[in-house]
Design a protein around this nucleic acid. Structure first.
Lengths: 252, 252
DNA sequence: TAGTGGTCTAGACCACCGA
DNA sequence: CGGTGGTCTAGACCACTAA
C-alpha cells in the first residue's frame, strides 16, 4: 500500500481551464513538468495509468497521451508497455536548444560583454557564398566580435548575414545577441548545423584571447536556417578552451 | 499549373502493408523520408494537404498526422497553419543520435579498427565514482582503446563501466563498439551528456595520434544513462583534430 | 472565402509485462 | 490472467493564411 513508487494522488489539485487558448495537452504536460521539477513527484515515481489519469482530469485518452508524449520528448519520463510511466533522473533533462553564446553566458550567471571589431558590408567570398547559398559577390554584412565574460575574453566570433537581415546598428549588436536581432526582424529560427573542432592559436589569436602561444582553441562553424529553410547566418568562431566548453545532450 | 512547389503525385507508387508489424504511421514516414532523401521530392515542395494524403493512402487523418509529426521531429519538413507542409533543406536532417564513434565512422564509409590498450578491473577513483554515481573504491572496468579509421589514428578512448556490465571479453571489444556491447546485455540506452573542449597534446599523445608536438586535440567527456537513469558508462576521450570533427544539429 | 494544419473526442483492438 | 502503453479510426470544431 505504501509503495514508494505509487500514484499521483498527492499532486496539488489541478483543474483544466477549457476557456484558455493554451491547448489542454499542454496545460497537463506543464503541470506534470512542474510537479517533477519541484520534487513533488520524485524520481522513480510510477504514474497512474493514462486511462485513469485522463478520466480524473476529464480528458480523452488521446489528449492525455499527447501530454505524456510531450514529457517523453523532454526526457522527463520513460514509458514501457505493460509497466507504466516512470519519472527518470532530473538531470537528464533538456535537449540542446538553439541558443546564442550570449544567452548561455547569461544563464550561467556570467556577465557577457561584446566588443564589435568589425561591422561592414563586404562581398560574399567563396565559402561564405556557398554556406549562405547565395551567388559569389553578393553583398553581405560581416561582423567580427570579441565576446568577454566577466571581463575575460572567451571567443572571437566572425559572422556573415544576408543584407536583407542587416536592419540593426553596431550599437544594437554590442548590446544584444545576434539571434535576438535576427528574431527581432520577424524571422523564426528553425535549426542550425554546427561543426566543432580544434586548432592551435596564431600569435594574434593568443593575444586577443589571452591564451599562451599555440594554445589549443575550440573552433566552431555554424549555419543557421529559418523556417523556410533559408540560411540566415554563417559564422566561424574560436573559443578559449581554458575558459569555455560545449555541453551537448544526446538522446536515443 | 506547373508550380515548382506542387503536390506529391509524382511519388513512386506506394501501398501500405497492413499485415506488417511496422506501424502504419512509420511506414508512411519512412516512405516520405526516402522520397525526400533521394531527391524525388525536392526542397521547397509543398505536400498535398494531410486530409487528401490520408484518404489517398486509405488512412485516417490522425495516423497521417502522426507520420507528418515524425518528419517534423526529424527536421525534414515544416508545417504552417493555413499554408501547408513544406520540405526544408535536405542537409538539415539527422537529429543528433546516441551513436558511437564506431557507427559514425562506418556511416561515413571509413573502416574503423580498434586496438585495446587496457582491459582491466580497477577501483573507481574520485571523478569516476562521482560521474558513475557509485562509492569510491567500487570495482569498475577500465578500458583504453585506440581507434583508427582506414589505418589512421583518430582517437584515444578511456572508458569506465560498472562491473555488472562487464560481461564481455577483450576480443569482443576489439570488434564491436562499446554501445553495442552494452545494448547486447539488455540495457536500453536513454541519453548522454557530453562536454567538448580542447587542449594541447602531450608528447605521448602526439606520438600515439600521429600529430605534431603540442597539437590541438578535441577533448570529450561523456556519461551515458540507461532507461532507469542509471549511469552505464563514463568516458574521457581525445580526438586528432586534423582528422575528426564533431557535427552537431540544433533545433528550436 | 476557401483551404490549411491544430486540437479534441469516444471509442476499438493489440502487444507486452508481471504475477 | 489483468493491467499497461501502442496503434488506429471517423468523425468534429477551431485558428490561421492567402487571395
Amino acid at each position: 500500500m505504501s509503495d514508494p513508487t505509487a500514484g499521483l494522488d498527492g499532486l496539488p489539485r489541478f483543474v483544466i481551464d477549457r476557456s484558455s487558448p493554451v491547448p489542454l495537452y499542454f496545460q497537463v504536460a506543464q503541470h506534470l513538468e512542474n510537479a517533477i521539477d519541484s520534487g513533488a513527484v520524485p524520481t522513480g515515481t510510477l504514474f497512474q495509468n493514462e486511462v485513469d489519469l485522463a478520466a480524473s482530469l476529464g480528458l480523452s485518452r488521446p489528449t492525455m497521451r499527447r501530454a505524456m508524449q510531450h514529457l517523453v520528448d523532454k526526457g522527463l519520463v520513460v514509458r514501457r508497455r505493460g509497466i507504466g510511466t516512470r519519472v527518470v533522473k532530473p538531470k537528464l533533462h533538456r535537449p540542446l536548444e538553439l541558443t546564442s553564446l550570449n544567452d548561455d553566458l547569461n544563464r550561467a550567471g556570467r556577465k557577457p560583454t561584446t566588443e564589435v571589431l568589425s561591422f561592414k558590408r563586404v562581398e560574399a567570398a567563396d565559402e561564405v557564398a556557398d554556406r549562405l547559398e547565395i551567388p559569389e559577390g553578393t553583398p553581405v554584412l560581416e561582423l567580427i566580435r570579441l565576446r568577454r565574460a566577466d571581463g575575460e575574453p572567451i571567443a572571437k566570433l566572425i559572422n556573415f548575414l544576408p543584407e536583407r537581415l542587416a536592419n540593426f546598428s553596431e550599437e544594437d549588436l554590442a548590446e544584444h545577441g545576434l539571434y535576438d536581432l535576427i528574431r527581432g526582424q520577424g524571422i523564426a529560427l528553425h535549426s542550425a548545423t554546427q561543426t566543432l573542432g580544434a586548432r592551435n592559436a596564431t600569435a594574434a589569436e593568443s593575444r586577443m584571447l589571452d591564451e599562451p602561444k599555440g594554445a589549443a582553441l575550440i573552433t566552431a562553424q555554424r549555419v543557421t536556417y529559418d523556417d523556410h529553410g533559408m540560411a540566415v547566418e554563417f559564422g566561424t568562431h574560436i573559443y578559449a578552451s581554458s575558459r569555455y566548453t560545449f555541453e551537448v545532450q544526446l538522446f536515443t
